[in-house]
C-alpha cells in the first residue's frame, strides 16, 4: 500500500503573525490533512490558524545553488542602517 500524499503544515501562532512552517502530515485529502495537522501540531494552543499545502506544490531552491543565490547579498553591508555613522547627540534617526 502506498502512503497518502504529504502536506506541509503552517501555523499562525497568534493574530497578526505570519503562518510559520512547523512540519508535515500524510493525509488522503485536504480536510483530513487539516485535522491531522491540528492533532499533530496544535495540541498545546500553539496557534490560532492552520494552513496545509500539498508538499508537491512547494518549489524549493537547490542547496547546491546557495552561493549563487545568496552570496551576492554578503558584500552589500550598506543595505543595513548600522553601516552609517550618525554623530552622537542626533536622535530619532
Amino acid at each position: 500500500m502506498s502512503d497518502w500524499p504529504l502536506w506541509e503544515v503552517f501555523v499562525r501562532s497568534k493574530g497578526g503573525m505570519a503562518h510559520r512552517h512547523v512540519g508535515s502530515v500524510h493525509a488522503p485529502d485536504p480536510r483530513i490533512a487539516l485535522r491531522h495537522a491540528r492533532d499533530t501540531y496544535t495540541r498545546r494552543m500553539e496557534g490560532v490558524s492552520l494552513w496545509v499545502v500539498p508538499s508537491a506544490s512547494i518549489v524549493a531552491s537547490d542547496p547546491g545553488d546557495d552561493e549563487a543565490m545568496f552570496d551576492p547579498a554578503a558584500d552589500k553591508v550598506y543595505r543595513h542602517p548600522t553601516f552609517y555613522d550618525i554623530p552622537e547627540g542626533i536622535t530619532h534617526i
Binding site: Y78, H80, P81, F83, Y84, I86, P87, I93
Partner: peptide
C-alpha cells in the same frame, strides 16, 4: 525594517 537604512543614508549625504 528596511526603511531605516534609507533615512540614514540620506542624512549622511546631508552631513
Amino acid at each position: 525594517k528596511e526603511e531605516s537604512f534609507h533615512q540614514r543614508q540620506g542624512y549622511e549625504i546631508c552631513m
